[in-house]
Computed example of a mutant assay.
Amino acid sequence: MPRQLTDSERTDFLAQQHIAVLSVASNDGRPPLTVPVWYALREDGELTFFTNTQGRKSRKTLLLHHAGQFSLCVQQPQFPYKYATAECTVVRADRSPSVDEVFAITSRYLPEEAARQFAEAETANPAGVFVLFTAHPDRWHTLDFA
Rank of each mutant, 00 (worst) to 15 (best):
M1G: 13
P2G: 07
P2I: 03
Q4P: 02
D7R: 12
D7T: 10
D7L: 15
S8D: 15
S8Q: 15
T11R: 15
D12G: 08
D12H: 15
D12M: 12
F13G: 01
L14T: 09
L14Y: 04
A15Q: 09
H18F: 04
H18N: 10
A20F: 01
A20P: 00
V21S: 15
S23Q: 05
S26T: 11
G29W: 02
G29E: 04
R30W: 09
P31S: 00
P32K: 09
L33M: 13
L33R: 12
L33S: 12
T34W: 04
V35W: 06
P36N: 02
V37R: 02
W38E: 05
W38C: 11
A40W: 06
A40C: 04
D44I: 14
D44Q: 01
T48A: 14
T48Y: 06
F49Q: 00
T51L: 06
T51V: 13
R56K: 10
K57I: 15
K57E: 14
S58V: 12
S58E: 14
R59K: 15
T61P: 06
T61I: 03
T61R: 14
L62K: 14
L63P: 09
L63N: 14
L63D: 13
L64Q: 05
L64G: 09
H65E: 11
H66W: 08
H66E: 10
F70E: 13
S71L: 13
L72I: 12
C73L: 14
C73I: 13
V74D: 01
Q75R: 05
Q76N: 04
P77N: 09
P77A: 06
Q78N: 15
Y81M: 03
Y83A: 08
T85Y: 01
T85F: 04
E87Q: 13
E87P: 00
C88Q: 06
C88S: 06
C88V: 07
T89K: 09
T89W: 07
T89M: 08
V90G: 04
V90M: 00
V91F: 04
R92S: 14
D94H: 02
R95V: 09
S96M: 02
P97W: 00
S98N: 09
V99A: 01
D100F: 11
E101A: 13
V102E: 03
A104G: 11
A104L: 14
I105R: 01
I105N: 02
T106H: 04
S107D: 07
S107C: 12
S107R: 14
Y109E: 04
Y109T: 08
L110P: 03
L110I: 04
L110S: 11
E113G: 04
E113R: 15
A115S: 11
R116S: 09
F118M: 11
F118A: 01
F118Q: 07
A119R: 02
A119T: 10
A121I: 10
A121Y: 06
A121P: 05
A124D: 02
A124I: 05
P126L: 08
A127H: 01
G128R: 05
V129M: 02
F130T: 12
V131N: 00
F133V: 14
T134P: 07
T134Q: 11
A135F: 06
H136W: 08
H136P: 10
R139P: 08
W140N: 04
